[in-house]
Design a protein around this nucleic acid. Structure first.
Lengths: 227, 227
DNA sequence: TGTACATCAGTGAACGCGCGTTCACTGATGTAC
DNA sequence: TGTACATCAGTGAACGCGCGTTCACTGATGTAC
């Protein structure tokens, strides 16, 4: 049974985080300031220190939230697709990740953009950060188990360089396909970042950006051996 | 014939830019300050305004320089490879781009990272920015012309969404391969960013990062129809 | 149930920092005759 | 070649800003007897 104080404390912690998120709707992670957050909540800036030991700690909490929200979005989308349709599952992941990124550009930058200067992410962000890649691992494992034909790959994959990845994948996924899966993740994040940061201006017609992305994702899915 | 004043002016402009680059060796684009640059050069901060109208203009000059240096590195590496070996040319581009990124992480962030808050890149950065993608365009065109077998792609590529890209590619490159080429660029930049920003910690063994990258690039090259 | 004390939340002032940019100025370089 | 004036480079002080963080404090909430 939580004491009144404890309940209020939890509530205010939430309010501070929400104010941080609201800040991120208009301003990037670098400009996110503890003082502005305090102002939003209606607290003295010094009061925030009762809840977060420093700006970095607040950032960490926001990073975890962002990763989790992205993870939620992607997992939800992927779970809605028939298990056997691996191409569609991949497409769902891609679509959801991009939609989340477009809807939350600063949160996307917070987790997948250039790191905030001076900030070092603590280990505590790892579980949330790995939700998306872990989902892709599961997807790839299913595709291999279901006998999706292997894509052509170069010889000599340096399996030793990917120790942990291969362990997570399990013994049934060949090294080359595991690494390809990681390339899919890389492409996905890179592609959303490209669109968000204006590198596709003049390349992809904004009016047909959805269709373009969908095709690209599908092509990538084929390359990864998911179709 | 340049007057003495003009020559000194050019020299100092160079010195300021070099000081900016030196700043970027230790500090990210966001933290790059006009005052610190002035200090480096041994000028009053106000004097820099005789050379650059604002911090943004200085940033623009540095961005163009960074794109050009990356472009130089990549073009030089690619030019050294026999024209007919498209896979090796792609590998050279990939290797050079990554090497440049690892050697100049902050310059990489300057051009391919999260945009600096408040800064908007003027059109004048476009020619330098497009050197890398244009090189890939040429490479892909050569590969198609040489009859490299087309990779399997999904049906229904929304060619209309990529108007400018297809025009640049020319009529001999099928739309699907052109778009795949762009995916290669996306992957390349995303992959270097991932490595730079720590997203591959615990995935790729740092001691074998080069070999890992080389294989991944080769796999990507295969997927793009360059081998 | 009531009292005495300890814990905690929140305040507001202050510290020290570095930034981009402006401005009136001095002195040197260039130009026109 | 020499002079008179215009142009330009560089200075240093100042403006105004917002930041993260600390600290001594007040008052409210919780706890032990």
């Amino acid at each position: 049974m939580a004491t009144a104080r404890e309940r209020v404390r939890q509530e205010l912690t939430r309010e501070i985080l929400e104010a941080g998120r609201r800040q991120l709707a208009t301003v990037g992670p670098v400009e996110l300031s503890l003082r502005a957050v305090a102002r939003e909540v209606g607290l003295a800036s010094s009061a925030v220190y009762r809840y977060f030991a420093s700006r970095d700690e607040l950032l960490t909490a926001l990073i975890v939230e962002a990763y989790d929200e992205l993870g939620d979005a992607v997992e939800r989308a992927e779970a809605a697709v028939p298990r056997a349709d691996h191409g569609a599952r991949w497409a769902a992941v891609c679509t959801a990740a991009r939609a989340w990124g477009l809807a939350h550009p600063h949160e996307f930058a917070l987790v997948y953009g250039t790191p905030v200067p001076g900030y070092v992410a603590p280990r505590s962000t790892v579980p949330a950060a790995t939700r998306l890649p872990r989902l892709l691992v599961a997807l790839l494992r299913d595709a291999v188990a279901a006998g999706r034909p292997a894509p052509v790959t170069p010889a000599g994959v340096p399996a030793g360089a990917y120790g942990d990845l291969l362990e997570i994948m399990g013994p049934d996924v060949p090294a080359d396909r595991a690494v390809l899966g990681m390339e899919g993740w890389t492409w996905l994040v890179g592609r959303v970042g490209f669109e968000l940061h204006g590198h596709l201006v003049g390349v992809v017609d904004p009016a047909r950006a959805d269709a373009a992305y969908a095709w690209e994702a599908a092509a990538m899915g084929t390359a990864l051996g998911l179709t």
